[in-house]
């Protein structure tokens, strides 16, 4: 039995030496046409850039910025993938203001944020979060329908491989924010 096993193992070693490797190379070649088509961008790179545009095209009430601040603070609640993507918009300027990104590890000091991007948070927690800040001038951006249902303002959702925007205008107004009509025209206006 042992001998049998050994010989089987030996045979299969010689077989696998070639087969999978060949298969892999074959696939590499066959599939290489796909790279040519791959004019795609990372989801969160695009979402971070869209968030930057929201910062550009949103007007905050005067009390939303602490004393003539020269920064716009974008906060994120998410994992390292989100952090990485938003590091790409850090230090960008909008008029005279500079973007600062704060990656929150806990749900605290939210009032330092003008914009809050929320990713991968469970529904239960999202409801509490939105409830806590619904009257504060913080533009909240999430990723799925539940976020709007929970009272969030904007969702960036993947539909057919592209990002689509939905805006809950009531929530935006309650927080005394104004989003430029150029942006609104690109979005679907929804209510929770």
């Amino acid at each position: 039995m042992l001998n049998h096993t050994i010989s089987t193992v030996n045979t299969l070693f010689s077989a696998i030496k070639i087969a999978p490797v060949l298969m892999i190379f074959l696939l590499m070649e066959c599939g290489s046409f796909r790279t040519a088509l791959a004019d795609t961008l990372e989801e969160y790179t695009v979402k971070a850039a869209l968030s930057l545009n929201f910062a550009r095209f949103t007007e905050w009430p005067p009390d939303g910025f602490t004393a003539n601040s020269s920064v716009i603070t974008m906060c994120t609640l998410g994992d390292n993938v989100i952090h990485d993507a938003f590091s790409g918009v850090e230090k960008k300027t909008i008029g005279k203001k500079t973007i600062t990104v704060i990656n929150l590890t806990r749900i605290r000091d939210l009032n330092q944020c003008q914009l809050l991007f929320v990713s991968g948070m469970e529904k239960n927690k999202t409801i509490q979060l939105i409830d806590e800040i619904k009257m504060s001038p913080i533009l909240t951006i999430g990723e799925d329908d539940d976020f709007i249902k929970s009272g969030g303002m904007v969702i960036l959702k993947i539909v057919d491989g592209k990002v689509s925007m939905q805006i809950n205008l009531d929530a935006v107004k309650k927080a005394r924010l104004q989003i430029n009509s150029r942006v609104l025209k690109l979005a679907k206006i929804v209510s929770p």
Partner: peptide
Amino acid sequence: DVTQLDMADLLNVKVTSVSKKAQAL
């Protein structure tokens, strides 16, 4: 480059999240 794109372009580009699994820590 992406931050220079305008919103209409950003909404029109194909996006992928395939590397999320590889990148998440």
